[in-house]
Design a protein around this nucleic acid. Structure first.
Lengths: 223, 223
DNA sequence: CGAAGTATTGAGACGTCTCAAAATTAGTGG
DNA sequence: CCACTAATTTTGAGACGTCTCAATACTTCG
């Protein structure tokens, strides 16, 4: 099932096993592919692995009993996810598009962390940046209008995945809505509104390629 | 300004310096009092100390430029707050009522953590529980109704500060609203509604002492 | 090219917010 | 301790933003 791969990809972000993200950790790495829509791990499942997106995109979410969904984060190329302190995962993680992940056995990581204080420090700083993102997102979900939420989303994605001026969103309107605490219709309407104001353009024949025309106006909308 | 105190209080929770929360750390501890409404630290201020509530209650919040406020957490007796990985605080912290805190210099704590892996582990697990709280709160803020939010709030506070069956809330309706992403009127109406249904009672002549009459019905409301 | 999935747009419903007033509680100084 | 004032809470009525439901358009994929 798991294929051992150590081939170097020529991609920008720092990957597990390269001496950065998780220092010069001697952890066993594998790669695995998930096709669009499949689950990487489920909420409350034992947290056996830690993952990093090599290619594609992943959403982590929680569900209420009646199906309402809150996406806590999108994981894009280079992002590490599924890192838990406790025994089980607190989110469900699904591939948004066909996705390749690199994975490390959690117990190995913990073993290395015990020996190497730098690795332990990396674990803390990753957890801290997750916390920081969650804190900012609470402000968005609790207090921002739909326009402010969508503007914040666009700016976040712009900074994380824009290549050559074009932002190719992997996620659907529904995913965006569940991330922003809105409905997909409200997201769609708000994007149309921003397009109408000349702040962004839709590119080609897909609605998921977006070009930001006026970042500073968007930034003003995101208080 | 800071008074060195090592007197043992006879209170329930484990405190800094007692061999639990932060292991057998040899950190210098002081106590300090903040009167109702005063700021303990501000957002983006250098994070020089880590705090623990000895008596009273604290709110941590973020503000938007126009004054909208999102409270990220309430810190009650025993809770540690102001723990940062980065150089600065990401929230403003204010005393809700007259409050006594114990505080430790952050650099000392880091120094100890470097020497003692158990302390380092405690730091990570504290950050993780903050993260876990934030993740649950994102679900609440993004997807729950006002009734579900208030029910969740009551159950959270019930588990954290009920003494002798009575829950003495230190925070105002406005604080609750800013925690739940609602307005104070909606919080008040929702509490009235729950009272009307016989799920809770208001005690004495204050509106901040509440007795939960039917926890299981409340739990059903909090999906 | 047809079918399924996704996005847009519209119209009306609904939940929460806003504004306002009254009731209650807390705080202050005599 | 009381009287007075300020602050907080409750309650009401109407406004507003987002949601729901529905229809249409567009894109993707077999």
């Amino acid at each position: 099932m798991f294929v051992n791969v150590n081939a170097n990809s020529a991609v920008r972000p720092k990957f597990l096993g390269e001496h950065d993200g998780l220092s010069r950790a001697q952890v066993i790495l594998s790669e695995f592919k998930y096709s669009r829509g499949t689950e990487v791990f489920g909420e409350a499942e034992p947290a056996e692995y830690v993952y990093q997106v090599v290619e594609g995109a992943v959403r982590s979410y929680k569900l209420l009993s009646d199906g309402r969904r809150q996406i806590g984060a999108f994981h894009l190329v280079g992002d590490i996810f599924g890192l838990e302190n406790g025994a089980v995962h607190r989110f469900t993680a699904e591939a948004i598009v066909d996705t390749t992940v690199r994975l490390a056995k959690r117990v190995n990581l913990e073993h290395v962390a015990r020996a190497d204080a730098l690795v332990a420090r990396d674990l803390l700083s990753m957890t801290t940046s997750n916390l920081q993102h969650a804190e900012n997102h609470m402000l968005l979900l609790g207090r921002k209008t739909s326009l402010e939420r969508v503007a914040a989303f666009l700016l976040e994605m712009d900074s994380r995945l824009t290549a050559a001026g074009v932002m190719a969103l992997p996620m659907s309107r529904r995913d965006i809505a569940d991330y922003l605490g809105l409905t997909l219709e409200t997201v769609s309407r708000t994007l149309s509104c921003l397009h109408g104001k000349g702040l962004l353009d839709f590119l080609g024949q897909t609605q998921r390629q977006i070009v930001l025309r006026n970042r500073s106006e968007l930034a003003k909308l995101d208080l």
